[in-house]
């Protein structure tokens, strides 16, 4: 199986980069990546990158390794071979605790259905994101984030009082609390109707653009393609 880029960009492709020549740091850079699971190669990606401000869609059928790739990028799943650089930092060789903190500060992650910590209110979910990496955010900042996803009046709500779409928006706001350089989203719209999917896509694109973060979304949801200038098509594993 091989990942191939559908849309080519400058500096991309299979050209091995000469380190001194790289002036700008990419949000994501992957080299010689492969992942074996149960003795089977489920993912192979020789060279792939997403620039700062870039928006990349990861497409592919079920089982093609979309989720696995996002988890590797987030430093949650160690690849079998290869290196991953996020915002210029090599994460595959970091000690685990350092990688956890790095992820908290640099990467936001949004899931399909797994959204909020149930014991905490909406606002506390946002506070949690700052707390776990040892940051402090003013309530004004957090309310501002909630306003941006249209939920400023639900700050005190408990997760069970929210709809799927609302919880999804809170999760997006929470992913942005630490001003990440990269936002990863795994099937963020697959559980939503058209209107909600549209709204989430808009939010993801607008909010990442605003903080100049790269956006990488894994989905088989065709409704999302128009929003992305870059696309990575993963093939079915053989």
């Amino acid at each position: 199986m091989l990942g191939r880029e559908a849309a080519s960009r400058e500096g991309g492709g299979g050209v091995p980069p000469s380190p001194p020549a790289v002036a700008t740091v990419d949000a994501v850079r992957v080299r010689g990546l492969s992942l074996l699971r149960n003795g089977r190669t489920v993912l192979a990606l020789a060279d792939w990158s997403v620039p700062v401000n870039g928006r990349c869609l990861i497409a592919g059928p079920s089982g093609s390794g979309k989720t696995s790739l996002l988890q590797i990028l987030a430093g949650i799943l160690p690849p079998t071979t290869g290196t991953v650089e996020i915002a210029g930092r090599e994460i595959t060789s970091m000690p685990e605790a350092a990688r956890d903190r790095f992820r908290g500060r640099t990467i936001g992650f949004v899931f399909q259905t797994l959204h909020l910590v149930r014991a905490l209110s909406v606002l506390d979910n946002l506070r949690l994101a700052a707390f776990v990496v040892g940051e402090r955010r003013s309530d004004a900042e957090l309310h501002q984030l909630l306003r941006a996803v249209g939920l400023e009046d639900r700050a005190r709500a408990r997760p069970f009082e929210l709809s799927q779409g609302e919880a999804q928006r809170v999760a997006i706001a929470r992913a942005l609390v630490n001003r990440p350089r990269l936002l990863l989203a795994d099937e963020p719209t697959s559980a939503l109707d058209d209107a909600n999917a549209q709204r989430i896509a808009e939010l993801l694109v607008a909010r990442t653009a605003e903080i100049e973060a790269a956006l990488v979304v894994a989905t088989h949801d065709a409704r999302l393609s128009p929003w992305f200038e870059q696309k990575l098509e993963l093939g079915r594993s053989s």
Binding site: D100, L114, V132
Partner: peptide, 12 residues
Amino acid sequence: DIAIMRVLGATR
């Protein structure tokens, strides 16, 4: 919940 916390940057 623990998984979310870990993704948010919480260490083990």
